[in-house]
Every structure is written in structure tokens, then in C-alpha cells.
Amino acid sequence: MNELELKSIWSAYDKKLERSLKLNLKIFEDMQTGKAKSKLDALLSIKVGGVAIGVLWMAFLGFLVYVVNFKNLWFSGSVVMIMIFTLVAMINYIQHIILINKIDYTKNITGTQTKLAELQVSTIHTTAFAWLQLPFYTTFFWNNNWIMEGDKGFWFIAVPITVIFIIITIWLYKSITPENLHKTWVRKLMMVGMEYKYALSASELLQEITEFKKDEV
């Protein structure tokens, strides 16, 4: 089969489409009434929603530290650590929002896809990072008296629980990677939604783009 034959098959396909394809313009009517939203807009809404929840969560934690139990260093220290993790995740999400707004589908494909795939990979890393705050949920009720008095309940129950959480957290952090996202349990942990659905093959696409551009002379 030569080049001409290939193109003539494709051209026949074109003619066939011209005859038989009817353009369904309902989507266009929906666009006019604001019903139709692009996937990129939906992704943007998720990120904006994430930042809004982060702000509320930070305000709530700040309120807890300031009003409820400011003097207990374990309590306020744990809550402040959780706030720091939340803040970092929020900063990442704000960076994602900026990046999504910069994505322009009219630009070349390898450039646009690299940006989008990096955004999706960053979403996974942000989630993995957020899990690192988990052990601090097991330390906020500690107090110095338990340590000074050698409380058995503290040393044999509270501390081992925290140690277990630290081990689980580190394992989760190392496991939640773009490469492992095809595993069902990882996806369940990440509460797979639209945000992650499209991140699934992001690292593969980045690899493909690198290979695609490699042959350049």
C-alpha cells in the first residue's frame, strides 16, 4: 500500500462523513444558556472549591488554637502543624488555578500537554503530601503531665498509635505516586474523582512527550 492509497482511503472516509454525518447542535444551544461546561472549567471549579474549603478549615483550626486551648502546647502545636500542611496544599491549589488559566488549547500540542500533565502529576503529589498531616491528629490531646509522670496509658497506647500512624503515613506518601495510580486501593485512598481521573496517565503522557521530541535533530 503506498502513500496515495492511504490518503485516498482517508479521503473516502471524509466524503462518507460529509454525506452521512449530521451535526448535533444541541450542545451549542446549551452553551448559549450556560448549561454546557468544559472539562477544564470543571477542573478549575474543583480547585477553587478546594481552596475555599482550605480557607474555612484554616479559620476553624485558627479559632480552635486561639479560643479553645491556646496554652496546651501539644494541642496548639498539632493544630498548627495541620494548618501548615493545609496551607501548603492550598498554595499548590492556587498554583494549579493559575496554571489552568494559562492553558491555551490554541497553542501547540506538546507544549500544552506538558503543562496539563505536569498539573495532573502535581495534583497527585499534593494529595500525597496532605496525608503527611495524619499523625498530628493523634497528638493534639497529649499533655506534659503524661510524659513527666510516665503514664502507662500514654507510653503503651498513645505513643504506639502515633508511631503506627507515622509509619502508615510515610508508606502512603511513598505509595501515592503517578505510577501507582492505576492500583485500585491507591485510587480509593485518593477518593478518585474527576481531578484524578485525568491524572491517571499523566506521567505516561509526559514520558511519551519526551520520547516524541527526542528524535529531533
Binding site: 472539562k39 477544564l40 488549547y105 490554541t106 497553542k107 501547540n108 500540542i109 500544552t112 500537554q113 496539563l116 485525568y198 503522557l205
Partner: peptide, 9 residues
């Protein structure tokens, strides 16, 4: 450009 970018994304 637009169609392929959307498809690959």
C-alpha cells in the same frame, strides 16, 4: 490544535 489538545487532555 484545539481538537487534538482537548482529545489528548
Amino acid at each position: 490544535r484545539i481538537a487534538l489538545n482537548v482529545a489528548i487532555s
